[in-house]
Design a protein around this nucleic acid. Structure first.
Lengths: 235, 235
DNA sequence: CGCCATCTTGAGGTCTATCAATTTCAGTGG
DNA sequence: CCACTGAAATTGATAGACCTCAAGATGGCG
């Protein structure tokens, strides 16, 4: 269980950091806590708005509608900061749910302000990271708004594949079909059917929670973009 | 036709600006151009990535899928900056479409970098503005993912009403039903039917492109949030 | 007055949700 | 080692939401 500074990774990916910048960022993950799967993360009890850096496991932001439906807004992987978009907003804090066992480090919003003060350049990097997240949200809107179920799934699988850095054609996807459905605006039953369809067409293979991509181009075609778009759009 | 510094407004709304900060921002809208309705805005011909400040009229960001479908990603009102999320990204620039006749000021991405350098505090404000936009995108994902057509429309009308600052219960909405459909992931035909439904239920009245909200609470109920959520979530 | 885009309305078909029954599978205790 | 359990996944049947196609109605504008 290494709690190595995951948070640095996305920043290092954008620019070379000074020692001071690193320690500023590292300070954000000095309070690791472990949460079991299916837990709502709220900042150490008090109702004050709280942010989290995620250092291990999968989590998501979600919204629950009055009629009980869920919409998952965002899926977080280690290294991401949860709550960035609430900076300087008085709105009710978003809800975060641990999808697996998770290690996350809560910190108060003021801390971010301090970082911004101390290092304007880090502020710029935060801006770019937020902009990157926004691009992902845009993709998700296109996906949910204009693609049929199979296409949505194809797009979702590819997005996950890309976000996991193309490691290998197969990867662990610790998400129930119900969670995937709530992320894509579909019912869990229909996820099952659509996955079956992708399997029949020989595009993916799934055993348990492992996904194996057999035909990336086929998936991309279903999702409605070319292989070029893939390499361009990293996290 | 006053091209008054619309861009300052959202910033002034967040913090008191110094004279220097104002002139930095104002420099972003020193190159006004007029575009007729239905024009694609691309930065003065060259393929270089370009941003725009919008000073008059309505515009949107959109994506066109390989099969010809459109998804409108964002609707811009005067004072907004178009393209913020592309900062520091190498992706293909987004497409912007003038929905009415429009006055917009293109400027190169480097200019933003300069602003960030010159005033870290402005950088923070940009960050908060981007965070606010992200909140709107989140709402849109919930809307498209989990609400039936009538609810989506209700939500959309309320969002517009709020963004137009609650001026009056009626306002100008210079959008064709086809545009609304492409923003909500619905067909234009279904927009027509759903609007008819809202009318029959006495929630709104529409003549031409004027919208009159007759029952805000009723609309909010359909959209699935309470009146409280309304006052909280401003632009 | 006539033209064109936009909106409306109808009919039929497709996609997805819902409900419910069954199967799978990992975890648990006998 | 095997039966028991509960969550998750699969499968079938039906209903509902939305789309598409196509034919009128409406309304601004030349």
């Amino acid at each position: 269980m290494e709690y190595d500074s995951c948070i640095l990774e996305p920043f290092e990916h954008l620019a070379r950091l000074t020692a001071e910048e690193r320690s500023l960022l590292a300070a954000l993950e000095e309070n690791p806590r472990t949460y079991p799967p299916d837990t709502l993360l709220n900042g150490s009890g008090r109702h004050q708005k709280s942010f989290f850096t995620l250092t291990r496991g999968w989590a998501c932001a979600l919204r629950i509608l009055p009629d009980g439906q869920r919409q998952i807004l965002d899926i977080y992987l280690p290294g991401q900061i949860m709550g960035l978009r609430e900076m300087g907003h008085t709105q009710p804090p978003g809800e975060f749910l641990a999808l697996t066992e998770v290690t996350a480090c809560p910190f108060p919003g003021d801390r971010l302000q301090e970082v911004f003060q101390a290092s304007p350049r880090l502020g710029q990097l935060f801006f770019r990271i937020l902009a990157g997240e926004q691009s992902m949200l845009i993709e998700r809107i296109v996906n949910i708004g204009r693609r049929p179920a199979a296409g949505r799934l194809a797009h979702f699988l590819i997005e996950m594949h890309v976000r996991l850095k193309f490691r290998k054609p197969d990867f662990e996807l610790p998400l129930s079909q119900s969670v995937i459905g709530d992320a894509l605006g579909l019912s869990s039953v229909h996820i099952s059917r659509s996955l079956g369809q992708l399997r029949e067409e020989g595009l993916v293979r799934m055993e348990g929670r492992r996904v194996q991509i057999l035909d990336l181009d086929g998936l991309a075609g279903l999702a409605g973009f070319s292989r070029d778009d893939l390499t361009a759009g990293a996290l």
